[in-house]
Design a protein around this nucleic acid. Structure first.
Lengths: 340, 340
DNA sequence: TTGTATGCGTTATCAT
DNA sequence: ATGATAACGCATACAA
């Protein structure tokens, strides 16, 4: 491989000068610069980023861990991450953790080995390696979370107002005449589930309504189908189901179809995320739109702020969500009564 | 940061010995080893991978570029890649190229800068940087393709028999009594489109049937919807549409629904890939199953073979596909006639 | 079994 | 404006 040495030799200058042409061209005389550039071209020189990193202690990489890259919500977030990172000159090291703690730790360890400058973790578990780092460096540790926010972690995060969004959905369901409402949540230990649950229950309370029935899922289609089936075969089934992910809602939709229960006529279904598929299923799915790419971009910005010493206290970036009403949401049995 | 020097000093041995404990423990005396390990623990030492890479010229990373990570087909392939890479001790640098040549080149350049040991590109365009490398090192260049195979490139690749699969779909459609068949293909310049087109036309020829009508899309839902709409509003619409991706098929399904055309009664629709959503749409989508994760894993194996000098001639790995018949595929108008 | 010494290719400091 | 030179932290050939 050709090194800066070769270039310098070919151009008849010192290594220092050759290096300067590449790093600070304006510091070098026009003629010398041209000569060096010519050698660079001729020899096909490209900088060895490993050597550069050793010297500068910067890798130009960020790690991003995600519970499941094949989940359409996360893949959109990742797209935002990649876009922002690439624009800022960073490369993305992708870690699919499959929700396994061990894999989360493995990727966190990479930060210690200096394989990357920082880490963005999507998901709710803070690997112990990162906790240690956080302990030592506080808010200056290059760690950012996406989607789930737990203030006590002391980590910057980009997310929506999950409690608020869930509250809105429930209020809308009540206004449309629904009283028997069920929830299909995410895993019980996730702050995201917790926040939405808080918002949903608060709405019931505000309304003086019964507490919603709760089934928990894991955000997958299949878990939505199962939970949906279980809800729809109850003695007194709900008239509306609010799912904490679109994929689960699509599963619930499939459950209703196979049980011969019409949506939205007999059962209304609302999802969460507004993945692309939401508008193409039958009936089109009402949902809460999350700005997925923007969440991804924002986590990168938060991380860059830390890396560039522009931030020394954790930031909680709340991005706007939007309730998207589509045909899967119809009036409930109490609509008239509640309107008069 | 604590380095191997600190560890050596703390343990009262030379740097070499300390380093050996970590790399070749069996070469070091039991007692010394224990002493060194103790220092490692106490000081919280972790190897600086950048320095190690500079010395060994191995990064332990592979680059994977993908046209669109939010495409469910690719995200599954990537999952397979990540899994296999991680298992082999490699990390994955993800590049979402958005089908833009410039971005493809950018990621290819990273190989030159030694930011990774090899590259897997999903998509059909070979960046010029890689072409140059291939020119120089032939089959020993650490470059592998996934999904699309063009023998002339001289690159190892993992994929299915696209022509064969398309042939099978068409044959099945004919056998079920369809005569007016339309195709919604991918981009015209992709070998994948070309191969499937070849297979489909061959099937028509073998059958002595008319050439299928062709609309081209770009694998997205929206392009499928558009193409589907255009096909369904023809003077003499087809009775079956074979789409080169499930997402386009789902778009076509939506088009049929909005046009009031019943599937499968009036129009049969077949997709390609068997993404998870295929079985949950209404009606469930008939399709060709591709072993997505396996394709991903296999590309990694092919790359590792090159990196470990186990392979010096390009390999074309053809993985098995499977026609999956579901309700979106029904009998055509000529079923009885053709059977008697 | 352990230690000494060198170099990987940069970047950056300090002279000139 | 340019050059000489010293790290960065590790791995390893060679010597002891």
């Amino acid at each position: 491989m050709t090194t800066i040495r070769d270039v310098a030799a070919a151009a008849g200058v010192s290594r220092a000068t050759a290096a300067r042409v590449l790093a600070n061209p304006e510091m070098v005389a026009e003629a010398t610069r041209a000569r060096v550039m010519k050698s660079v071209e001729e020899l096909g020189y490209t900088r060895n980023s490993v050597a550069a990193s050793l010297r500068t202690t910067r890798t130009g990489r960020i790690i991003v861990t995600v519970p499941d890259i094949s989940n359409p919500f996360f893949s959109r977030v990742i797209r935002g991450v990649e876009e922002a990172a690439q624009k800022a000159g960073y490369a993305v090291l992708l870690g699919d953790t499959r929700n396994e703690r061990e894999r989360e730790e493995q990727y966190a360890e990479m930060l210690n080995r200096r394989e990357a400058d920082g880490i963005i973790f999507l998901g709710h578990r803070l690997p112990t390696t990162l906790a240690r780092l956080l302990d030592r460096d506080g808010a200056r540790a290059p760690i950012v979370n996406g989607c789930e926010f737990t203030p006590s972690l002391g980590v910057s995060s980009a997310h929506i107002d999950n409690a608020g969004a869930a509250h809105e959905v429930m209020r809308t369901l009540y206004e449309m005449g629904h009283r028997d409402i069920a929830l299909i949540t995410g895993p019980d230990d996730s702050p995201l589930t917790r926040d939405r649950l808080i918002g949903a229950r608060k709405a019931a309370e505000d309304r003086g309504a019964e507490r919603p029935i709760v089934e928990s899922g894991d955000f997958t289609i299949e878990s939505g189908r199962r939970a949906g089936m279980s809800l729809l075969t109850r003695d007194r089934p709900p008239t509306a189901i609010f799912c904490f992910s679109d994929e689960m809602a699509i599963g619930a939709l499939a459950a209703a179809r196979s049980a011969g229960i019409a949506c939205p006529h007999t059962i209304s279904i609302v999802g969460f995320d507004d993945i692309q598929m939401a508008r193409y299923v039958d009936p089109p799915l009402a949902t809460v739109r999350q700005p997925m790419a923007e969440i991804g971009r924002r986590t990168v910005e938060l991380l860059l702020d830390i890396l560039n010493d522009r931030q020394d206290t954790p930031v909680s970036a709340t991005l706007p969500h939007q309730l998207v009403v589509r045909e899967s949401l119809g009036p409930g049995p109490h609509l008239v009564a509640s309107n008069t």
